[in-house]
Nucleic acid binder design. Structure first.
Lengths: 228, 228, 228, 228
DNA sequence: AATGAATGAGGCTTCATTCAT
DNA sequence: TATGAATGAAGCCTCATTCAT
């Protein structure tokens, strides 16, 4: 779960299938890019078809390499899954941690800013797919749950919770139950990520609602409920 | 039950999930119950491990029959999946449709009542698992999306949307964007269903928040935001 | 290593490839004969080509079943190997143990009889192949060594050693080193088993010497050397 | 060395195990030694794990070179096997042939000397492993059998056989069957070589008997049986 | 209707071999 | 010459499905 991922540094936000169009020799093309290409391909496919239904050869093919090459970088499909999740979330961690610290203005604005930042960073990037992956695979790989809760859920709840708390303390918000408010704000964001990679990907029916617009309005609506 | 099943393409109903409504001699009780037992076992396992990772023998075993017996009722694992989803959702449909029609009181109360009714009916029942199943499997079986959107999503959005609309028209709610408000209300409910069958099943960390309490407060909070 | 072998009782001495010529339905032919048929096929092939070079499908094919059927009886190729060795040697054990006890005549005759009995039982039967299997595979599966030494080597050395001892005590043999004499008697027998399943099977060059005649004369020769 | 290599069919010598006899500048010492290092590593590993179970990368690693380098010296793993066997046995051949010719003393002493010389040369050297290799691999590579029988077995039997014959003719030995006596003398020696590289390498149980002491006593015992 | 032994296509993984550097 | 990344054929094993009982 750890080893192979230390190689990966730059985290491309490309939407998957790595470009093979560059003029480069087919072999030895760029060894140091391989792991990230494989992780991207794997995230795409695992999120699309599910871990079990994705053949490792498909992952390799989408990354532009042969079946065997995958195993030069990850010792098994399962380790690949863990690496995919870990690598994507590792970048999440600590990202938003600091920013809320010394905000001077109204809490509503702070909240909007923090959530919007996170949303921008996540929804349009492949990271949005990780949430689907986690929802679908945790019960088969409980180690993932532990990691996810510790590294993403808890820090996230803390962050948003502290902002709500600030609002209450400054008299901007009513004295609501903090955890509840946090979930009210965040759950729809996660849900939209899941939607994007499931029903949203086959039935454009619901796409009449623009996700970014919705989240903005949703946050607005909940903040309205918190006000005074 | 038969009438509502025209959706899942031609093959899906080839076997016709057997009706339990016939008056049958008590000694055949067990045989009559088989299909439902198989569907229940399948829903459980599919939601837990995913469709691809669930062996059909496991389903049979959990239903208390032998491997071959499963195939007497459903011609393939895939048909079983479709039957599972369809059968669960068929009962959802039309249920809540009528109740909103002639409610006299304040819209807030109507909304709370409708959502609470639905929530009670869904969250603690196996039906909550269907949402996970849909999220995880639609992209592999697009017929499911079609069925789900038409029979569940659209009616649901309509129902809640009409209530929001009523609130606006009666001057109880601010003139918000209706689809947005609907999603703000509903997405956390779906999300909690998903959570229950994924992270909630392995990491009790988040279970500190009671789902029923949360939903009550969430609805309250959003309604607060809609008010005036 | 244990489980599956308890089913097997009668130990056929057929030279491998089980007769499929009996009129019997292809499926469900004789479930209880399967394990022995698979063990026989496996012993044959493992001794011929080596464990690693034998494909499990070959074993199945020689036993007259399909690839997958093998795995209904043995959970892996490695377990099959262990079962093969264990089952063959289990019959060895305790066989010769008792017979030497109360022999009245000259020690030379006793020795000839005991060795001839064992030789007859082993050399012309598939059991002779087990020795090759052990020689070739112990270093890859050290558990086998333990079992073999404990169950076959030690009892065998004890048995022959006691007879040599008896000869010495009765003044029939010279006071030689007992373990040495034992090995002088036995090693050529093992070696002939190995030969039979290696060079003897491809280059009939050495087959000018009849194994049975040789062993008789070899024992005679060594006993001659022990005399007085 | 080149002269004796006509045996292993056409392909076997395609690369021609490089001669070390050329006078070469010292800085190429390492390069010159490569083939022998590879052969030694291969013999070790093939004898330990079997040909099929040994990865060619392991051989390269043990010889201290990279995977690809192996293929600069031997065109395939199979050719490497043949080269290993051939090179080891080529040195065996003709060695002992001459020494028996003009021995003046008693035949027993001649025999002891010839066998002891051979034993010393073989048992403690890597050559002892070749016997295991031959036993385990002949049936997969029948060319080996041909070569081995012609170049090792037959000359060896001739040599020892002539000595036995000499003993009979000089009235020192009883008129026994010569081939039988030869095998009685030699088979335990081969068996001890096999043992050293199989059970002897994992279960030190049997190592209580010193091989050198045993062989001395074994020869003594058989000669005793031949006497008069 | 129910069983479970049998099948064999298909997926994961290994490793001999190649080849660009 | 030497390397080791890459390949893909081939082997182990699983499991959806069949079918004789």
């Amino acid at each position: 779960m750890a080893g192979a991922t230390t190689l990966l540094t730059s985290q491309s936000l490309s939407l998957g299938s790595p470009t093979l169009s560059d003029i480069a020799p087919p072999r030895q093309r760029r060894k140091e890019a391989r792991p990230q290409e494989l992780l991207d391909a794997a995230l795409d496919l695992f999120a699309e078809k599910g871990f079990a239904a994705t053949r490792s050869e498909e992952v390799a093919a989408r990354a532009g390499v042969a079946k065997g090459t995958l195993y030069l970088y990850y010792p098994s499909k399962e380790e690949l899954l863990k690496a995919v999740i870990q690598q994507r979330l590792s970048s999440e961690i600590a990202a938003a941690a600091a920013q809320a610290a010394s905000y001077p203005g109204p809490t509503e604005d702070l909240m909007k800013e923090v959530l919007a930042d996170w949303w921008i960073k996540v929804f349009d990037s492949p990271t949005s797919a990780v949430f689907k992956l986690i929802i679908t695979e945790v019960r088969n790989f409980p180690e993932i749950a532990e990691f996810y809760v510790r590294e993403v859920v808890e820090p996230g709840k803390q962050l948003v919770g502290r902002i709500v708390q600030r609002g209450i303390e400054r008299g901007e918000f009513r004295p609501v139950d903090v955890p509840t408010a946090v979930l009210s704000l965040i759950l729809p964001m996660i849900m939209l990520c899941l939607h994007k990679h499931s029903i949203g990907a086959c039935a454009p029916a619901l796409n009449e609602v623009d996700p970014h617009a919705f989240i903005r309005q949703h946050v607005q609506l909940v903040l309205q409920g918190l006000r005074r």
